[in-house]
Computed example of a mutant assay.
Amino acid sequence: MTRLALLVLGFLVAGAAGGVLWERLWEPTSGLTYDDQWFLEPAGPDVSFQAIALFVVIAFPLGVVLAVLAGLLRDGETATVVTVLVAATAAGIVMYAVGAALGPADPQALAAGSPDYTPLPGDLGLTAPDLGRTAWHSTALLAFPAGAMTGLVGMFLFGSQGLPRTPRG
């Protein structure tokens, strides 16, 4: 049981570290206020997609590496799979929460009451910065668990070549 608890703790710590890295590598988008709303400047999906892509580029390989390390422990495969899936999902949420907390505030909220054409940086979120969008409603949150399941399945299928398995019985 302590092995599984340490596994969860490791994923959560890695998720927090991933959130810090995500915020450090991300360059805030720029925008302007107009009529109490914030608009990207320059506008375009490639500009608003940068934070999402960076999240996936960090979360997926991090999930793979952590799951491969978890797969080295060959005891209780079913418990390991369930624990890794739950821990990776939680780590993705922690990664988002830490990164978003370290990033700039929501520009849509700051734009209300600001004079027109006030420059404001964008916030760190997983959706386009449109008015009315929830910043964490994104399938990008699945990158961490998808990477973890990829690494764990790969480890269970191909990682047993050089690893001795202890007999049970």
Rank of each mutant, 00 (worst) to 15 (best):
G76N: 12
G31N: 03
G15R: 00
Q108I: 09
A109C: 07
P104T: 10
L163K: 06
S114N: 04
L126P: 03
P45E: 04
R133C: 11
A100H: 13
L141V: 07
P129H: 11
A43L: 10
A128K: 00
R24K: 13
P42A: 11
A128H: 09
G44T: 01
M149V: 15
L102I: 04
G125I: 07
V20G: 07
G10E: 11
W26G: 04
T33R: 01
P107R: 02
G162F: 15
S48M: 10
L152K: 05
S160L: 12
G132F: 13
F11C: 14
G132N: 08
D35F: 15
L152Y: 12
A143Y: 07
A17Y: 02
F60W: 14
L66A: 14
E23N: 12
T118Y: 10
A148G: 09
F144H: 01
G19P: 03
R168K: 12
D35H: 12
V81P: 05
A140P: 04
G76S: 14
A100Q: 08
E77V: 15
V20S: 03
D130C: 09
A101K: 01
L66G: 04
A111V: 04
A59S: 13
F158L: 15
A16F: 11
S114V: 05
E23K: 10
D36F: 10
G125N: 06
V13I: 15
I58E: 02
V153Y: 14
Y34V: 03
A143G: 05
L126T: 04
S160F: 10
D75W: 13
L9S: 13
L12W: 01
M95W: 05
A146L: 14
V94N: 09
S48C: 07
L66Q: 07
T166Q: 12
G154T: 14
W38K: 03
G103V: 08
T127M: 12
A148C: 10
L66M: 13
M155I: 15
R133M: 13
P45F: 13
T29P: 00
A143P: 07
I58M: 06
V20W: 12
W136V: 08
L6A: 13
G15N: 01
F49M: 11
G113S: 10
Q161C: 03
G18K: 00
G169F: 14
L142Q: 00
S138Y: 06
